[in-house]
Design a protein around this nucleic acid. Structure first.
Lengths: 204, 204, 204, 204
DNA sequence: TATGAATGAGGGTTCATTCAT
DNA sequence: GATGAATGAACCCTCATTCAT
């Protein structure tokens, strides 16, 4: 009982550190944020922080995992519904905090890092694979119901959908004249048209 | 005459430094690559490097500008053609060196940096605006020829197209089972369907 | 209790650093003395030194403040005595360590720096103002007792006295044939004659 | 003839460099001013500057010599007059540009440097000795005419006078409420009383 | 559990100086 | 006479990490 409480406290501290780290990483980058900055942000001494994580690298990796798992979790919440991929994507886009792009700009950090850090690459790939599998299943179901173009390869298509998802925060960064709602609509339209069965088939 | 030659030599050295920097940035990140690394890569002493650039920041900015300008230049080469946006995008994707994604992974570094560095943000935005204007014009021409859905706002749509372009290097990073040719086809299909006028209107 | 001890240890280290810095500054100048030199002199790593001071500038300023405060303190020790300014000055000159001019040559460094560094200027001025106020009070008391020329403006005269005090280390530097005792006598004579009431008035 | 012209041009350039160096040294200190700064100020490339001086040290020494020689020269201009030391000092204080203390603040730099640099020390001493000899002669003449206290040792007294002279720029630095004219009067009064024969002798 | 003293390598940058042109 | 490319050591300062308490 007491053991469990201690463990929970420990886990709580870990999460505090990761949250502080996330904030620092957003503001200064994965490499630009220093341990001492994270310590200050978390209200903690460096010696103590190293009680919870063995290295800065471990903090980055844990943060990446947590962050991506949260995205993953969002998809799971909709899994049981029999909605088509379009709906699924649309739902995803309505998720809490997503419009606060500051929160998800960290994705670019991770993508950049994944290109040169094998560990981060693996974490990104693992989490992405989970989402892709889910999307692929949904796409296949959509194909069976005739809502999705049967010629699209579910595996490949799921990758494209995830890429689009990850690229979304780019829009406000490049084009300040497009607000969140606008880009949501545009991308939803694009994906819908992408997935829908060729109209010629309907006409025949 | 001699003066001009000297100037060209100076510019040549600058380009060498930028190329070396690009390589280092790719391998270690914008912040992770150190001046001394860049010097070693460029075969140069640090004191001399500062003869050509006043700071590391200036090197990053010049590199970003050069890199993005090169992308911009690719588009201009196709401008006069009366092709629809689809063709344009498809053409872009065939551009030299683009498939060597190591070369363009730097985009993620820039996107991450743009989120917290006002200068890089401005550079990214300026170069993006150029491409967007070009794409918007092409889209409008396509709409007039009936090849592009007239309901799509050219300005907003151009932003989406650029985002997709920039997101492309993500695909192999996340999904190693998709090769370049495959993703080219997928994205071309998606964009083509995105832009095409709704068929229902034709059928009626 | 323990907390206080820790704080004292911290302050002790600070003083050690300042003492080491003083020695280095004497030998190489404020600008010529490097952080790594001070570290070596203090038996400390650079990283650790920056635990106690945020910058070299801060070290210089703290050193200047401490050094000038020490001079100031010497004057206060004599304040309650009802001696005339002459005696006060004479006493000052007998102060411990003052004859070891190597210790006070630092004043020239500070004066030179004060001409182009606003912070050092302010520190010098603040500490000087304290001494001047004290001297001015003593002069006024001397005037009331008829020991000091009543025509001398106490405020201005105090400035001259301080300047003479500061200039004293110059003598052995320029004229190696004058030892400390000799210059003490000369300056005391000069100041005594400067301050004394014009004798003509007495004779009339 | 042509040889002489060349030599004059060469000497002119040297003086230009020294003037530029003086300005830089004033603004940044002997150590803080860099060769490249001096080059920029003198409108010259570093390679060319080293054509005129073998090292930075040589520039500092030449500058010190020139500067002190200029002071020396001022005294010589008054030498033949049979005035007492008081008059001489007063005259000196009226010298052109002296009130622009920015010009003579360099003295502190030299005094500070002299404490740790044997060459500068020698230069300072040599030039000071010249002035001291001159002052000593004037004092001796004053003593013979009964205008100067015969008990004062001319050699030592001359040193004190030079020290006072050098300390003068300190006044405005420490006490902004004292302008040049005021300090001139104060110091002249002090020196006059210092030198004058004891009044008791007059009364007898 | 929690602190902060301590390290020393390495960060970006400037330095005095040399040399080919 | 005059340039500016070139060097590499040293500048001030920050880093991730360890350890005694």
């Amino acid at each position: 009982m007491a053991r469990k409480l201690v463990h929970e406290q420990h886990e709580g501290k870990r999460q505090e550190i990761l949250a502080a780290a996330h904030r620092c990483f957003l503001q200064h980058g994965l490499q630009g944020a220093s341990i001492s900055m994270i310590c200050k942000e978390a209200g903690m001494s460096p010696g103590h922080l190293y009680h919870y994580f063995p290295s800065k690298e471990a903090i980055v990796e844990a943060m990446a995992n947590d962050y991506l798992a949260e995205l993953h979790g969002h998809f799971n919440a909709h899994e049981d519904g029999a909605s088509t991929a379009t709906v699924l994507l649309s739902e995803l886009w309505s998720m809490k905090g997503w419009d606060a792009l500051s929160h998800c700009r960290i994705l670019f950090e991770l993508l950049a890092e994944a290109g040169r850090n094998e560990n981060i690459h693996a974490i990104l790939k693992d989490n992405t694979d989970g989402i892709r599998a889910l999307l692929a299943r949904t796409l296949k179901a959509g194909q069976e119901r005739g809502e999705v173009d049967p010629d699209l390869d579910p595996g490949h298509t799921s990758a494209v959908l995830v890429a689009i998802l990850d690229a979304a925060p780019m829009l406000p960064l490049m084009a300040s004249d497009i607000d969140f709602e606008e880009s949501r609509k545009l991308i939803t339209t694009m994906v819908a048209r992408f997935l829908q069965p060729p109209i010629t088939a309907v006409g025949e």
